[in-house]
């Protein structure tokens, strides 16, 4: 799963497969970080802002 794992090889299969996997994980991870981070910021740090966005 990681390049330091015994099974890892720098070949096409690994690059495509793990590439796709890490790509998806990155998007999900970044997306969630953004959502949580922004919610945190809005709630606890940026108190001036009206939470009612409409």
């Amino acid at each position: 799963m990681f390049p330091f794992c015994f099974e890892w090889m720098w070949d096409m299969s690994h690059m495509v497969f793990m590439g796709g996997l890490w790509y998806a994980l990155t998007i999900i991870g970044l997306g969630m970080t953004f959502c949580i981070g922004k919610a945190f910021y809005d709630t606890f740090l940026d108190k001036g802002k009206d939470d009612h966005h409409h």
Binding site: C35, K38, A39, F40, D42, H53
Partner: peptide
């Protein structure tokens, strides 16, 4: 509020 905003962001 936190959850409200989190839901909104998501």
């Amino acid at each position: 509020p936190f959850f409200h905003r989190l839901g909104h962001n998501m």
